[in-house]
């Protein structure tokens, strides 16, 4: 097995351990199709339990009511990818946005991103989050789908250090290491996913 394949496997294994859903795709188009499938299935199922079904105080409840139809947000993609994903969304009747996250704080269905790099030994991907839209999209979405190019996977965090340094030096910078979905164990140490951020994390390993 070559090193690239080994690291991809390690990445898949470690990310899986922290409840990320890992799949492999051959092209960005395939990634878009996957994302729309997830979006479709989401409709087929119940709305993911994001708290809106509970009894809430008036203020928080109002924010739930403000939740609009189905939306995929993908800020920060290259122009042709925006075009392709936008068209794919339109074809399936799903809303598509690349900005204006602040008017969707109640939540969007899917945030779609492409990672800068990844750390296989912990199943982590590195997201350049300096764009406020991108940062918000990955926090207010209920499902985060992130494409990780296999060529960008390294084994340890020290191997992405130089890259991280460049991102930090090119200030203002905001870099995120993301490993699994948002979680807490603050009540009786019982694991609960999705306390603030995404309820599900999908990683698409892109063979490039």
């Amino acid at each position: 097995m070559n090193d690239k394949a080994r690291l991809a496997d390690l990445m898949a294994e470690k990310a899986g351990l922290v409840s990320a859903i890992v799949s492999r795709v051959k092209s960005l188009d395939e990634a878009f199709a996957y994302t729309l499938d997830v979006c479709d299935k989401k409709e087929a199922c119940q709305l993911l339990p994001s708290g809106c079904e509970s009894d809430l105080s008036a203020g928080a409840g109002a924010l739930c009511d403000a939740k609009l139809g189905k939306i995929i947000a993908a800020p920060g993609l290259p122009a042709e990818a925006v075009k392709a994903l936008g068209e794919a969304c339109a074809g399936r009747g799903v809303g598509f946005i690349t900005q204006g996250m602040r008017s969707h704080l109640a939540g969007i269905d899917i945030g779609f991103t492409i990672a800068e790099a990844a750390i296989a030994e912990t199943g982590t991907f590195v997201l350049d989050s300096r764009s406020e839209e991108l940062r918000l999209a990955t926090m207010i979405c209920e499902v985060h789908v992130c494409v990780v190019p296999v060529s960008a996977i390294r084994e340890t965090s020290f191997e992405v250090e130089d890259h991280l340094r460049e991102l930090c030096q090119d200030a203002p910078g905001y870099v995120a290491f993301i490993t699994g979905a948002s979680r807490t164990a603050d009540i009786e140490r019982v694991l609960a996913i999705g306390v603030h951020g995404p309820l599900e994390l999908h990683i698409l390993l892109l063979e490039d």
Binding site: S129, F177, T179, R183
Partner: peptide, 12 residues
């Protein structure tokens, strides 16, 4: 945990 779910690096 091998790493926390989020590590955030904020510069400026």
């Amino acid at each position: 945990q091998a790493i926390t779910s989020y590590v955030t690096w904020i510069t400026g």
